[in-house]
Simulated scan of single mutants.
Amino acid sequence: ALVRGDAAMVLTGGTEAPLSPYALTCQSTSGRLSGSADPERAYLPFDTAARGHVPGEGGALLVLEADDAARARGADRPYGEIAGHGATFDPPPGTASRGAASHGPTALRRAVELALADAGAVPGDIDVVFADAAGVPEADRAEARCLAEVFGPRGVPVTAPKAGYGRLYAGGAPLDVVTALLALREQVIPPTPRGVVPDAGHRVDLVTRPRETPLRTALVLARGFGGFNSALVVRAVTR
């Protein structure tokens, strides 16, 4: 309905509260939780010392509506435009799926390619990537390889603000989208915090300090435990 320009308003997003004893017990079986007792070194995506992630609670909600409908109600300064989306699935290890790669960067790269095509964009149009940043060495390597294949080695600034507040699960991707839209508005890339030192082998231009730079288009990546991959392109709106 929004794509058709209907005068509809959609509230979308997500939140999660994964810090209860039962929820933490369930998460502990994934092998992805950090075992570090030092909060400053517990969640280090793309770092040589990466050892898992730290869960967090929270999320974000967004109001989506057609541009004409927003103008009609006087919303003359939108945060941005949802320009394109792509989603794919990695089969779990040990399962067979024709034409799909298991536990690698191929399916994530395909999600990125679908999102770019949906947005009518090419890799060179992307000014910053908000990474999934699992903090698990194997997953980080796969994501970094995907980024290098699509954008070239260190070909695009990459950031993971979630390293400062934890992975929010269902709330994480919506909050990354909000953060990306704010970055486009303020023309600054928020950093990956907590002293992350990027592994040179990942070939990722990881932003570790606020970086003021012209920003027009951002790519937000999200990977779900179990194999789901999502890529969303957001674009600044000028009026």
Rank of each mutant, 00 (worst) to 15 (best):
V158D: 03
A70V: 06
P153T: 10
S102Y: 03
V10G: 06
L19V: 04
L24I: 13
A83N: 01
A139F: 06
L61I: 12
S36H: 01
P210S: 00
V177S: 03
L64W: 05
T217C: 09
R167V: 02
N229D: 06
L62F: 08
P18G: 02
P78G: 05
A160L: 05
G201L: 07
R154C: 15
A100C: 11
G120L: 02
G94N: 02
G13H: 10
N229K: 03
D127W: 07
N229Y: 00
V156C: 07
V156L: 10
D76C: 08
L232G: 01
A49V: 09
A134K: 08
T106D: 15
P191W: 06
F89C: 14
I126D: 00
G124K: 01
F46R: 01
G74R: 01
D127G: 12
Y22L: 14
A170M: 01
G74D: 06
R71K: 05
A236R: 15
L215A: 04
R211W: 02
G104Q: 05
A37Y: 04
F225I: 15
H85E: 09
G13I: 13
E81F: 10
L181F: 05
P78L: 09
G56S: 06
H202S: 10
R209I: 09
A173F: 14
F46Y: 14
A60F: 14
F151V: 11
E149C: 09
V233P: 10
A231H: 09
P174F: 07
T179R: 02
G80I: 14
A117N: 11
Q187F: 09
G226C: 08
R209A: 15
C26T: 12
H85S: 12
V196N: 00
G104A: 11
R216K: 05
L114A: 13
G135Y: 03
I82E: 04
V234N: 00
V233R: 03
A173M: 14
A1I: 09
C26L: 14
A180G: 04
P193F: 03
G172E: 05
T15H: 02
L24D: 06
